[in-house]
Design a protein around this nucleic acid. Structure first.
Length: 312
DNA sequence: CTCCAGGTGGCGA
DNA sequence: TCGCCACATGGA
């Protein structure tokens, strides 16, 4: 028994660019020609299909996701209430006219509100390697330790896996897990430690989701865990805790800060001190409240337009 | 072959 | 605090 819904948004949303812009590593392309994309969220199989610029078809194995009815969940998941253009400062259009015109296409990308723990683990897989390898690691982790789920779409069975619980990952031998983390034992060990911390409450993600917590404090708390530095902490905040003010700075962001925004700091090696400097610099031409939202749009635009990269 | 990819942590100066 | 290096793999 499956549930089908059709959701019409007020503004144009590009589902594929959103799901595969590198903020989520848990979606797979079922049928690119028909624009079908699938994932498992809270043990619910969910399939999205882009019907038109503003319409999305949703097929799920349950009518509730995370205790919400499907439509409510999707609206929240795609953060449709956010006015993307307000993530840039008012004079951006005039001060950075070339970038502004290049960005137009990318305003159809939304920043997702994803499950915090899954975001934490998946971004711990994203260190100094390409997007392709990150997806491979996450996919292997779900297949090895997640629960098998399936759904039949037009006569074809689609096999998916839920993301393994923190309890499940806690009990995995790091050496065995390293088969799923590029053979990187340090990363595997850090992931197990993080899963254990989540499982026994040392990392309280529900508490960290409190928007009243200052960004710097949130970042420092997350950084107390091995394998999480400023960048990963900001990614967890932005994509997993709905903190759209968090501005992760990676190799690509560093590059566009230097090239597009003439940052001399961004020309030098990225140290923790320079990370904080760049963070402050970015907030002079981005809306501080939505700096990370803007950062993700700029990030994806830079990767595609300048670097000619793919995210999957 | 070299360089780079959504980085982090340990080390010596 | 900064620069350098190991960690690991794969694509350009």
């Amino acid at each position: 028994m499956y549930y089908m819904n059709s959701i019409v948004f007020d503004e144009r949303i590009d589902v594929k660019e959103t799901l595969f812009s590198g903020q989520s590593f848990l979606w797979t392309i079922i049928d690119d020609d028909s624009s079908y994309y699938a994932s498992v969220i809270d043990y619910v199989v969910i399939i999205l299909r882009q019907v038109s610029d503003i319409e999305v078809e949703v097929i799920t194995s349950d009518c509730f996701i995370n205790g919400r009815v499907i439509n409510d969940f999707i609206y929240n998941y795609f953060s449709v209430e956010i006015d993307i253009k307000s993530s840039l400062i008012d004079c951006f259009e005039y001060r950075y006219a070339d970038i502004w015109s290049m960005l137009q296409v990318y305003f159809s990308i939304r920043v997702l509100r994803q499950e915090p723990y899954e975001t934490l683990i998946t971004f711990m897989c994203a260190q100094g390697i390409g997007m392709h390898l990150i997806r491979k690691q996450v996919s292997m982790i779900t297949q090895a330790y997640g629960e098998k789920q399936s759904i039949t779409l037009s006569g074809k069975e689609i096999i998916l896996h839920s993301f393994p619980t923190s309890e499940r990952l806690s009990s995995v031998d790091p050496l065995v897990l390293s088969a799923c983390t590029n053979n990187n034992r340090i990363r595997a060990s850090n992931i197990v430690l993080a899963a254990q911390a989540v499982a026994d409450g040392k990392i309280d993600l529900q508490a960290l989701a409190n928007p009243a917590i200052p960004l710097a404090e949130l970042r420092n708390t997350l950084c107390q865990n091995r394998g999480i530095g400023y960048k990963i902490a900001d990614c967890i905040a932005l994509f997993g805790l709905g903190r759209f003010d968090a501005f992760p700075i990676d190799t690509h962001v560093k590059q566009y800060l230097a090239t597009w925004f003439n940052s001399t700091t961004a020309l030098r090696p990225l140290t923790p001190a320079r990370y904080l400097l760049l963070d402050a610099e970015a907030r002079t031409f981005l809306n501080p409240e939505l700096a990370g939202y803007a950062g993700h749009i700029l990030f994806h635009c830079w990767r595609k337009e300048v670097k000619k990269l793919r995210s999957f």
